Structure formats: structure tokens, C-alpha cells
Simulated assay, not measured.
Amino acid sequence: MDISGTQLRAVRAALFTAFVVTLGTASHVLLSRAPLPGATVAAVAAGVFVTAYGLAGRERGFGRIAALLVPLELAADTVFTTGQHACYGRAGGPVAGPLRAVGLDVLCEGRVGSPLARMAGPDPAGELFAHAGPAAAWLLLAAHVGVGLLAAAWL
């Protein structure tokens, strides 16, 4: 059986996308205590699927996988955070004003992870790190790099 066949590549990429995006979305919602916009999750899922499909054709080593996954992990987190701030503001509520006039409300429809955000606690987004010192940013960066390296070792 050829593992690089088009149909099997699509199935492998879809399973990888479902696992990675679900895990990333859930952890981001739990840590930020705010839901994610559906369009943001869909954009990250599309990017992960296209990348996974393109790379599923042949075997690669740890170094090459890690060199790709670590920046992608950081990029996905940045897209998630940007989507949250654009749609829900710094306080976790809906954004009003001129952004609604240019159609941002269409992109912000649907809240992914609302039950998880409520389960994490009543604090709005950003409250978790509101009084954190400079070391918190380095710890968060180290956690993201660690997740990327762990995923590369798994793959």
C-alpha cells in the first residue's frame, strides 16, 4: 500500500488537522479564558491542512519537521490571539463602533470554545497575565517551543 497516495494523504492531513487544531483551540481558550472567533479557527485549520497535505508525501527527519512546526505553532497562537482581540476586545466583550461598520461582525460570528471559556473561570481575556512579570512571556514562549518540538518528535 502506497502511503503517499492522494486519498491517503488527504485523510492523514485531515486527521492531523483535526487533532492539532482541536488541541490548540482548546488550550488557547482555556488559558486565555475567552472564546475564539469561528473564522479564525477556520483560517488556522485551512492553513494546517494545506501544509500537512503538502508535506505528507514523503518522510522527513526531526530537524526539518521541528524547523517548520515551531514557527507554525507561534504563528497559529498569534492568529488566535489577534482574532480574539479583534472580535472581543481586550475585556472579552464584543467589539462595537467603526469595526462593525466595515463588516467585522461577519468574521466574528460564532464563538468557538465558549463552554470551555466559562469553565476556565469568570475572568476576561488577558486577566490571567495582567499582573505577570516579564518572565511570564518567556515561559509562554518556552511552552510554545516545547509543544512544537514535542509534536515534531511525535511526527
Rank of each mutant, 00 (worst) to 15 (best):
T25G: 09
F80G: 13
T22C: 01
G61I: 08
G92N: 06
A34Q: 13
A42N: 11
G103T: 11
A136T: 11
A39G: 09
P37Y: 06
L128K: 14
A42L: 15
A120P: 02
V48F: 00
E109H: 08
I65E: 14
G110M: 02
V112M: 12
A10C: 11
W138Y: 14
A132H: 13
R58P: 01
A52E: 05
G24L: 09
I3C: 05
R33M: 05
A56F: 04
A125Y: 03
G61E: 06
R100W: 07
G146D: 04
Y88G: 05
V95P: 07
L99Q: 06
T51H: 14
G148Q: 11
D2L: 12
I65G: 02
P37T: 08
M119G: 00
V145G: 07
A143Y: 15
L140C: 03
T22L: 02
L99T: 10
G47K: 00
G61C: 02
G63W: 05
A91Q: 15
R9G: 03
R118H: 14
F19C: 10
I3H: 01
L140Y: 15
W154M: 13
M1L: 11
V21I: 07
P94K: 07
V112C: 00
A39E: 03
L116H: 11
P122R: 14
A46P: 01
L139E: 07
T81H: 04
F19M: 12
A45V: 14
P134A: 15
F62T: 04
R9V: 02
L15P: 08
Y53A: 13
H144P: 00
T17P: 05
T40F: 06
G54F: 10
H131W: 05
A130N: 08
R60L: 08
L15W: 01
